[in-house]
Design a protein around this nucleic acid. Structure first.
Lengths: 333, 333
DNA sequence: TTGAAAGCGATACCAG
DNA sequence: CTGGTATCGCTTTCAA
């Protein structure tokens, strides 16, 4: 692998000059520039980015933390970020935290050690203090789907409560009075907020929230199935179930089919997230649109603006959920 | 951020000694070791991995290239790799190539520039020559889902042809005689192989392959829908359709429903890959199991063995597809 | 506009 | 077992 030294030798200029044409920030005469370019081409020179990072304390790469590397939600998030950053020549390093405090922290520290210029975090398990401390360490970062008051301007988020509200309100408007709910893990902020929205919608409609109609899932498809089983066995009668995400909703629909319960005529189902295949389920799933791709883009833009000094970028930090009505929910008769 | 220099100063030893306790490969007296450890703790010292890489020409990270960051297939692949590598303290850097030659090459060069110790590549667009050249450059890598004779031992792959064969044979055994086929992009190796398997199965059953019953999709869900439309309009009558992947199969089933065609009674559908939600579709999808998680693990193990000198790892490079019979395919009457 | 030289933060070889 | 020192490949003042 050719080094900058060999290039400078072949071109008959100094190291510094070669470096200058690479980063073309300083003026270099056109003639020398051509010589250098030619030498680089001839040697098939590729700068060693590790050395660049060490010297400049800049890596042109941003670190991303997701909960899981698989799953439609994080897939879209990663794609959005990489697409956006790549256009500006920045690279993306991805790690996963598995919703576990220890592992999230380890991943974040790894990214920092890797001298990422900034971080985009979907951090669920790590404490507020840790994140606050990150800021005081001078680390540049932005949070997706988490709200911490003191870090407000670094939070790109969806109004989850409003989303939960919309989902439930939709069913109430359809005449449903007995609504079951399958929540995400209660310790997760978004799960809490979505549930709060649900309760608020009930209250506003004069319906009492019944703990017995509420099952705590884990956001996985299988827990939707488990949830439906549990509800059928332990809960009072209900005509619909609102799920805290689409994957659990999918689990519910599949299990319902196995149990011989028709969706939507006997049971309406509503999801949350609007993941890509919500529209390919049968029946197609009524859900709350979570513009995760847009939010991923926005997070990347934030970094571009704050860290890489791109101007003319409007940052918007709170996104609004939208109800997407499809076939899995119908009027209660 | 503390440096090794400050640690050595505080501990009253040389740089070299500090380095030695970090990498504990050379003997260091217990007493000095404790002094150093204490100093490190006191300063909250974290080695700078960029500097380590530059100096050691080792990064303890392996680069991964996938086609897309989203999608169930690549999600599982990435998860498998990261899970396996992390257990050994190695890190994963992920990039995407979007099935585009230019971008695949750029990503690979980025990973190399990043001094990854090895690469795991799902490279579709880059030429054989390029890959061959990679080897002669002395780069350690392993290929997933691609076969190049000269690189045979570096190829972790599924017998795609056999998979295509099984899918088609299954339908023929059920009595189908008019089989439509929706392939992946013809320029992709796996798409070719699966199609070959399909043709072989037809031939073995004495059925002629009919070009008019074959639509070329792009492995996306939407092209499954488009494919069915096209087939209904242009192709002779058929009683089933075999799809080169599950996502297109899902598209076919959804479109069939919209067209009022019952699956499976009027149309049997078979997919390929056995992605996680194949089992949540309605009807559940008959498909060919692609053990991508296992293959991702295996690729990681190969690297662990070859590059990081872990012993006692059995490497298996050709995986066997398995037919997974579910509800989307039934006997032809 | 260009060159010389001092780092960046570690590793690793060679002596002692 | 420990210390000194050259080195990795590049960036970035500082002068010229």
């Amino acid at each position: 692998m050719a080094t900058i030294y060999q290039v400078s030798e072949l071109a008959g200029v100094s190291l510094a000059t070669v470096s200058r044409v690479m980063n073309n920030n300083t003026k270099v005469s056109d003639k020398t520039k051509q010589k250098v370019l030619k030498a680089m081409a001839e040697l098939g020179y590729q700068p060693n980015s590790i050395a660049q990072s060490l010297a400049s304390n800049r890596s042109n790469s941003v670190g991303v933390l997701v909960s899981e590397l698989h799953g439609p939600f994080f897939g879209d998030m990663m794609s959005a970020i990489e697409d956006t950053l790549r256009l500006e020549g920045k690279h993306t390093i991805i790690t996963s935290g598995h919703s576990d405090e220890e592992r999230e922290r380890a991943s974040i520290e790894f990214l920092i050690g890797r001298k990422c210029d900034a971080l985009i975090l979907h951090a669920e398990a790590v404490t507020d203090e840790y994140l606050l401390n990150l800021e005081s360490r001078g680390i540049e970062f932005v949070l997706i789907n988490r709200y911490i008051k003191q870090l407000e301007n670094r939070c790109i988020r969806l109004d989850n409560k409003q989303g939960g509200y919309l989902a439930t309100q939709h069913l109430i408007k359809l005449g449903h009075q007995k609504l079951a709910y399958i929540s995400g893990p209660k310790w997760k902020q978004d799960a809490q907020e979505r549930l709060q929205g649900h309760k608020q919608a009930l209250t506003d409609a004069g319906i009492d929230f019944d703990e017995a109609l509420c099952f705590e899932g884990d956001y996985q498809q299988s827990s939707g199935s488990k949830g439906l089983d549990w509800l059928c066995e332990h809960a009072p009668k209900f005509s619909c179930v609102v799920c805290a995400n689409d994957e659990m909703a999918s689990g519910v629909m599949t299990r319902a089919r196995q149990l011989g319960i028709n969706v939507p005529s006997e049971l309406s189902v509503v999801g949350f997230d609007n993941i890509i295949y919500a529209n390919y389920l049968y029946p197609t799933l009524t859900t709350i649109d979570y513009p995760i791709y847009e939010m991923g883009r926005m997070a990347a833009k934030y970094i571009l603006k704050q860290v890489y000094e791109k101007k003319n970028l409007d940052i918007e930090s709170v996104f609004v959920p939208k109800l997407e009505i499809r076939d899995s929910s119908i009027e209660y008769v």
